[in-house]
C-alpha cells in the first residue's frame, strides 16, 4: 500500500480529531526504552518532512477514518503502524502494544472457554450418570440384549469346545497310530532278536555235537539221531545250510506267518475307527446327561409328550398367589407338568399347563387325572357336545 519513498502521514499529524489514537500512541512512546526514545526524534523529523511533501495525496483519508472511526477503533492504530515503514522502533513498539492487548484478550477468552468447559463437562457427566442409572434399573432393553449377548457367548463357547474336541480326537488318533507303529516295530525287533538267539542256539548245538564227536563222548551232548548221523555227517551240515538259506522248512513257516499277518492289521484298523466311534458315543452320552441335569436344575423335568398326563378341573379355582398359581374353570383340561415342588419333593400342589398356555400350581384335589389317550378324545367329545 505504502512505499519507502512516500510514507503515510501519522494520524495525529493529518487529523486532530482522532484524539484517542493519539493518546494511545503517546502511551506507546512512554513504554519505550530510553534507547528507542533517543532514536525516535530523528525519525519523526524525517517523517514529518516527508509527510508534509506527500500531504495533498493522502488528505482525503482522515475524513473517511473520522466518519467510520468509532470510539473503540483504537486498535486499528497498531495495524497502520505495522504496515508502514517508520523504522524498527516504531515497527516493534506498536506490535508489542498489540501483543499486550492480544494477550489480555486471549486471557479473557481462555477464561471463558475454561468456564464453559467446566460447566459443560459437569452437566455432561451428570447426564451420563443419569442415563447409566436408568439403563441398569430398566429390565427391558438392557436385560434382553444382555441375554442375547450371553447366548452368543455360550454359542461361541460351544463351537470352540467342539473344535477343541475334534482337535483332541485327531491328536489322540494320531498318537494311537504312532503307538501302533512303534508296537509293530518293537515286535519286529523282538522277532529279530529271537531269530538271532535261536540261530546262535542252533550253532551252539551244532558245535556241541561236533565237540562230542571229537572227544568221543566225553564232552558235549549226544545228537538225537546218533545212529544215523554217525554214518552221514554231511546230512547235519546240509540241514544247517538249509536252515541258513531259508529252504523248505522256512518257506513253510513263512506261508503260515503270511496267513495270520492280517490279524494285527485288522486289529489296528478296528482301533483306528472304533476308538473315535466309542469316544463319540461317550461324548453324546455325557451331553444328554448334562442336558437332563441342566433342565432339572431349572426345576422342570424334561417333558416327554408320550408320558404326559392330562387332567380335568372338577371345580373353579381362584389363585391366591397369581404369580405362582393358575386359575381354573370347571371342566378345563390341562397337562400335568410336575407333581413335585420346585425342590423335587412330592407335593399336594401340582404344576400344570392350562389350555391357554398358562403354567402354574394348583391343588391336586381340584382336578381329576384322565387315564388314557382314548379317554381324552372321549372327554373332548363330551365337552364339545355340552
Amino acid at each position: 500500500m505504502s512505499s519507502t519513498a512516500v510514507p503515510r502521514p501519522k494520524p495525529w499529524e493529518t487529523s486532530a480529531s482522532l484524539e484517542e489514537p493519539q493518546r494511545n500512541a503517546q502511551s506507546l512512546s512512554a513504554m519505550m526504552t530510553s534507547n528507542q526514545q533517543d532514536s525516535r526524534p530523528t525519525e519523526e523529523s524525517n517523517n514529518s518532512n516527508s509527510a508534509s511533501e506527500s500531504a495533498p495525496e493522502v488528505l482525503p483519508r482522515p475524513a473517511a477514518l473520522n466518519s467510520s472511526g468509532t470510539y473503540g477503533e483504537s486498535n486499528t492504530i497498531p495495524g497502520i503502524y505495522g504496515n508502514s515503514n517508520y523504522g524498527i522502533p516504531y515497527d516493534n513498539n506498536p506490535y508489542s502494544m498489540n501483543s499486550i492487548y492480544g494477550n489480555s484478550i486471549g486471557r479473557y477468552g481462555y477464561g471463558g472457554s475454561y468456564y464453559g468447559n467446566n460447566y459443560g463437562s459437569f452437566y455432561g457427566g451428570g447426564y451420563g450418570a443419569g442415563a447409566g442409572y436408568g439403563m441398569n434399573n430398566g429390565s427391558g432393553l438392557g436385560e434382553s440384549t444382555k441375554a442375547t449377548f450371553q447366548l452368543i457367548e455360550s454359542l461361541i463357547g460351544a463351537v470352540t469346545g467342539f473344535a477343541q474336541m475334534l482337535e483332541s480326537t485327531y491328536m489322540a488318533t494320531h498318537n494311537s497310530f504312532f503307538t501302533m507303529i512303534s508296537v509293530a516295530e518293537q515286535f519286529g525287533n523282538l522277532k529279530e532278536m529271537l531269530g538271532s538267539f535261536f540261530g546262535i542256539f542252533a550253532i551252539m548245538k551244532f558245535l556241541k555235537k561236533i565237540l562230542y564227536r571229537a572227544t568221543k563222548g566225553r564232552l558235549g551232548i549226544p545228537p538225537k539221531n546218533f545212529a544215523e548221523s554217525e554214518g552221514s555227517k554231511n546230512k547235519l551240515i546240509e540241514d544247517f545250510q538249509k536252515f541258513n538259506d531259508s529252504g523248505t522248512i522256512n518257506s513253510n513257516e513263512k506261508a503260515t506267518r503270511r496267513k495270520i499277518s492280517w490279524k494285527p492289521l485288522l486289529f489296528f484298523l478296528m482301533a483306528v475307527f472304533g476308538f473315535p466311534y466309542l469316544l463319540n458315543k461317550f461324548i453324546t452320552k455325557l451331553q444328554t446327561s448334562g442336558t437332563i441335569r441342566a433342565s432339572q436344575g431349572n426345576g422342570s423335568e424334561p417333558i416327554d409328550p408320550s408320558k404326559l398326563e392330562f387332567a380335568r378341573a372338577l371345580y373353579d379355582f381362584v389363585p391366591e398367589n397369581p404369580e405362582m398359581e393358575v386359575a381354573l374353570k370347571k371342566g378345563d383340561l390341562m397337562a400335568i407338568l410336575s407333581k413335585k415342588d420346585p425342590l423335587g419333593r412330592d407335593s399336594d400342589w401340582w404344576k400344570v399347563r392350562t389350555k391357554n398356555g398358562n403354567i402354574g400350581y394348583i391343588p391336586y384335589n381340584y382336578i381329576e387325572i384322565i387315564k388314557r389317550r382314548k379317554k381324552i378324545e372321549h372327554v373332548d367329545d363330551e365337552t364339545r357336545t355340552h
Binding site: 371345580y315 398359581e325 384335589n365
Partner: peptide, 15 residues
C-alpha cells in the same frame, strides 16, 4: 361345594 385346598407348600405362600 369345592373342597378346601390342601395346605400350601412353602414356595406358594405369599407371606
Amino acid at each position: 361345594r369345592p373342597p378346601r385346598p390342601p395346605p400350601k407348600p412353602l414356595h406358594l405362600r405369599t407371606e
